[in-house]
Design a protein around this nucleic acid. Structure first.
Lengths: 245, 245
DNA sequence: CGACCCCTTGACATGCATCAAAGGGAGTGG
DNA sequence: CCACTCCCTTTGATGCATGTCAAGGGGTCG
């Protein structure tokens, strides 16, 4: 899987493409825009809700009549196949918006990973927010564009990377999203099964990949919900495909 | 890969979830919106270009100063890893827009699969298009949302499906995009390697999956660039995961 | 007619899935 | 405070789908 496909294709892997790729992997996964502050204008229409672990916030196919903003806790956005297979499209963290894309129905199920507090805004009010304000419109478009970019990045991970590389990509992304730097401690609210379903692997493979990174000295694992990033350079090398395997 | 993960997770695969999933797979992959007609207003700024097979239209990291609309031919949007691995995020067909998402730099390389004719519009003019017209804005947002939806759908394919299922999903999507119905003839402009890099598989696996569908009587293969859809029901069953394997 | 390119098929290798069982850690009841 | 249970994680043994390597096959273009 990780070997070179043909000589013709090696030639395309030039130095500046490597640079581009690096840039693409490291660039902001998090929206640089803060539509959130504009949400303040909708406070009179908003309501606060709380969900406990594994509770469903909304289901795939439900009418998308609310937009949610996470106050605390984390959420998984997932889809189920009839036979029980599950895919987690993404994890949502405090500050993130859910359901802002233009969809009549929610395209996935949202479930609480931990206890979750969130604010919900009526969809029609939310849509009205941009009507008068070009700044809000730009931010909203930017937000959707960023999600698109993130989804395509993840496509790439699922399409091209092996287990260890996928895990490295995941760790780096979560670290970037929660502002954890090299040497820092990364809190993972989700369990191993969630990570597996996000990366298109099994729980056992996730465990083994974590064990491998641990024995490489790339990370330390004080407990199953925390990681210490001991060598972010190695993680980057893995996630950028510089060194297959 | 294709077997059930746990009893608890079977229970979630209820009848109406199956319905939802079916709906999601079959719903429009193609944007129901036609921002294209509004592009007519930019005709004085536009210019027509032609590219021949395998020619690069723009590269990953290039400044996104144009938006393109395909007149004829097809295009692959791809990303390269330093070691030569390649991922094709999507194929673009006549009528499709490229580069409309809000990005300062193109997030991927666009290459001509066949001879391609396209119209290019200056990015700044394109952005101005929506300023005065709420309808255009709505269409643009809808376009990006549809792309996001498509990307997440593809994540799902890459994350959960085996080779035969991925191929079935791909065939159904291409058929839907080119309005090919059951029993019809589907033209595939891209080669096997392109399909492989889109589905996260190797060219040999693509060949074998095609051979398998052929020997099932699900498709016929008059030549390597055309397929006859003999049993779309079987294709749907595969792509929806009703029958693992 | 020949060269090239892409597709196809076969034989073998391997990374990950699967199956199985043991090892924590947190909460609960005695 | 300990014993017990449950759930999640971890590790091992084995199998299989897909990758890899290799050798033809068939169409197209000069």
């Amino acid at each position: 899987m990780s070997t070179i496909l043909s000589l013709a294709r090696i030639e395309t892997g030039s130095r500046d493409e490597a640079r581009q790729f690096r840039k693409s992997v490291l660039s902001t996964f998090r929206a640089p825009v803060t539509i959130s502050e504009h949400l303040h204008m909708l406070r009179e229409f908003s309501s606060r809700q709380q969900f406990s672990r594994n509770e469903t916030i909304f289901s795939e196919g439900d009418d998308a009549i609310h937009v949610y903003r996470i106050i605390s806790g984390s959420v998984r956005l997932c889809r189920h196949m009839p036979d029980g297979r599950r895919h987690i499209a993404d994890f949502m963290l405090p500050g993130d918006l859910i359901g802002f894309a233009e969809c009549a129905e929610h395209p996935f199920t949202a479930e609480a990973i931990t206890t979750v507090t969130l604010t919900s805004y009526p969809r029609n009010q939310f849509d009205r927010l941009g009507e008068g304000d070009p700044q809000v419109r730009a931010n909203l478009l930017s937000l959707v564009s960023t999600s698109l970019w993130t989804a395509q990045q993840h496509q790439f991970v699922l399409s091209c990377q092996n287990a260890k590389e996928r895990l490295a990509s995941f760790i780096l992304r979560m670290a970037a999203r929660t502002d954890v730097l090299s040497g820092g401690r990364l809190d993972l609210s989700m369990g191993r099964q969630d990570i597996a379903d996000h990366l298109g692997l099994t729980i056992e493979t996730i465990c083994r990949a974590i064990a491998a990174l641990k024995s490489d000295g790339t990370i330390a694992v004080p407990n199953s919900h925390q990681l210490i990033l001991k060598d972010t350079g190695a993680l980057r090398a893995l996630s950028e495909g510089n060194v297959p395997q």
